[in-house]
Write a protein that binds this DNA or RNA. Structure first.
Length: 270
DNA sequence: CCCGTGCCCTGGCGGC
DNA sequence: TGCCGCCAGGGCACGG
């Protein structure tokens, strides 16, 4: 489940391998992944385009090409694989980009990922990226506006998962932020809005630490073939059910909050 | 508008 | 060993 740190890791790795290469052909094997075009259009538009830069906004990857922008969301299990020219494709390689010296494939077991093509200049101002709120480390972050959003009648977990308020946190990192705040994930946001600065600070810390370690690897997710994140060793509550809390020794429990599997320490997080 | 639920989709896993 | 059903969840559609 790639969240901001995993997408950042993917972006950096992709840049090393494919920056400057030209897309010669694109094969769309699962049309529904491409939201803005038919497979024929997608190939037509992207063929001949050079990969100039790759950036990220929230959990979206943004490929700057010669004439257009390609936006990619990995959702739960999306990955990019580098395949040698003579290598066979996998049944979950849904979109194949034929580049100069390798084939780049978009691999997604559950087919939840999405791609959009946008005109240059529209990539941040139109959906889906335009709906995103602030990244926690955005220097222009509007703390008063964030605080106001926390007054909604939702749990802190639901609010932190809402990408239109803060963007970048997903299920893993929200649990970690709640633990660092010492609050139960089901605590109403309005009871915590006075701690907005602290919430942002913990979000920044968790995300930055995870980025520094190449993200977290859980189950099937790897940043690309052969590379796994090391932040999984730093998780204090997520996926730690049955283990002792690093602070107080109480056994970590799992419950359900905001429709998501949620891990917490019943003694640190009341 | 607000908020909860279900859906998309496949593979892994627990239970029998 | 094999099969069945549940679970994982980001973002969105839908409905009360």
């Amino acid at each position: 489940m790639p969240e901001l740190p995993e997408v950042e890791t993917v972006k950096e790795t992709l840049k090393k391998f494919i920056l400057g290469q030209t897309i010669h052909k694109v094969e769309v094997r699962r049309p529904k992944i491409v939201k803005t075009n038919t497979p024929e259009e997608f190939n037509e538009i992207l063929s001949g385009q050079k990969i100039i830069d790759i950036t990220r906004r929230g959990k979206f990857l943004i490929f700057e090409l010669t004439d257009v922008m390609l936006i990619s969301h990995l959702r739960m299990e999306g990955k990019y694989f580098y395949r040698k020219k003579d290598e066979e494709f996998d049944k979950h390689d849904h979109i194949i980009f034929y580049l100069d010296d390798i084939n780049l494939t978009y691999h997604d077991t559950r087919q939840f990922g999405t791609m959009h093509i946008k005109a240059k200049g529209d990539e941040l101002t139109t959906e889906p990226v335009s709906k995103l709120g602030y990244e926690p480390f955005d220097e222009n972050i509007d703390r008063d506006w964030i605080k106001k959003q926390f007054h909604k009648n939702l749990s802190i977990k639901a609010l932190l998962l809402d990408q239109t308020i803060l963007t970048g946190l997903g299920n893993i990192y929200v649990d970690e932020v709640c633990f660092r705040l010492r609050v139960h994930p089901s605590t109403p946001g309005k009871e915590l809005s006075h701690r907005t600065d602290e919430i942002i600070k913990h979000s920044v810390d968790v995300l930055n630490k995870a980025i520094a370690l190449g993200g977290t690897t859980i189950r099937s997710y790897t940043s690309h073939e052969g590379v796994t994140g090391r932040f999984q060793n730093e998780l204090l509550v997520h996926q730690q059910k049955g283990k002792e809390c690093t602070v107080c020794g109480t056994i970590i429990e799992k419950t359900r909050v905001a429709g998501r599997g949620t891990y917490f320490c019943p003694s640190c997080q009341k």
